[in-house]
Design a protein around this nucleic acid. Sequence first.
DNA 1: GCCGACTCTGCGGATATCCACAATAGCCGC
DNA 2: GCGGCTATTGTGGATATCCGCAGAGTCGGC
Lengths: 198, 198
Amino acid sequence: MTMLHIVDDDEAIRDALGWLFQSRNVPVAGWPSAEAFLEAWRPDTAGCLLLDIRMEGMSGLELFDRLLSKGCRMPVIFLTGHGDVPIAVGALKKGARDFVEKPFNDNELVDRVIDALGFDAEQREREAGQAGLAARLATLTQRERQVMELVVAGRLNKVIADELGISMRTVEVHRSHVFEKMRVKTAVELTRLLTGAS
Amino acid sequence: MTMLHIVDDDEAIRDALGWLFQSRNVPVAGWPSAEAFLEAWRPDTAGCLLLDIRMEGMSGLELFDRLLSKGCRMPVIFLTGHGDVPIAVGALKKGARDFVEKPFNDNELVDRVIDALGFDAEQREREAGQAGLAARLATLTQRERQVMELVVAGRLNKVIADELGISMRTVEVHRSHVFEKMRVKTAVELTRLLTGAS
DNA sequence: GCCGACTCTGCGGATATCCACAATAGCCGC
DNA sequence: GCGGCTATTGTGGATATCCGCAGAGTCGGC
């Protein structure tokens, strides 16, 4: 599942890159056009992207833009023979991980791809944690969410009761439901969970 | 204090850029060489940097490296007439904010400089807050710091007492000293303070 | 040697939090 | 209408936290 996706309309280059990476034990998938990859892309597509800039049809840059607007966070490395400073600067400022001109150094490129794959794996791990958190948050009712926010803001139960215009007892009930659903035992743990601390 | 620092060995360009920015109400300081700016730079120098790449003596890139190693976090915009993709990519990956080729569009450059100045101001505000926090942390004794860490980890006083091999009462004393010194009233507030939450 | 810190501890009481048991009420779907 | 979910509140008790009052031991500086 996690692999390097090479998008280039030149089959010879795809093959050469495929050989290079497979010889280094990096799994590879080749795509003959931006359209083909865009069509196949799913939010759970993992790994990293090696994009040629100039291709028949959709360019690598446009593919990058389309992927970004779909919420894709995979690291992208651009590969081009026709380098141009404004293009490189624009791509990097949009979040591309690297921008490499041909001819490139094989070892360097492989290292950068491996770095990018590691980054993607870590990022997905973080996001998986966040997804579990989001799932638990989704089980809270409105009222529980309100109470939770005030608890995490450091308010005492009696203050929360005042602010929401309900009794302290009710706050306690909601509070304990929040703790149960979020699987924590103290307000501090809940705070760490929501603020994303170690 | 906060201003645009233009480093370029060509006096005509410094003057032209000076005029451009001053006409837009952006305060400017001109420096005839990387060495001159490096000499004058202090950790509290605020604003942003507009660096020419190719200069007599130290290059803009080398100045950038030297500033980074001194802990400078000012946003840097490179300006060059002799663009080169690997150089631009390297600069951006090291953290440069932008890389602009001459001839440039006046309005765009001014906008980017203004953005960068705003970014620097926000960054300094954040760091000022962190500095105040660090100062308060420095007033804690060893024991207080230990207790604080366990409190922020969500442990109950009795557990902290066990782990440190002291009585609960002593933990309470340290705990209240921590709250006092850190100027918070609850463990949750302390947690937010240390984990850098909103 | 005295003074100021830091550390440690106990007692007792005021608050706050946690929780089981119990009950009322509105809303929604089967 | 009945059952389930949500929101609400109360009583009462077990724990935990917050604090003032009191005392004691160590260590380093003047």
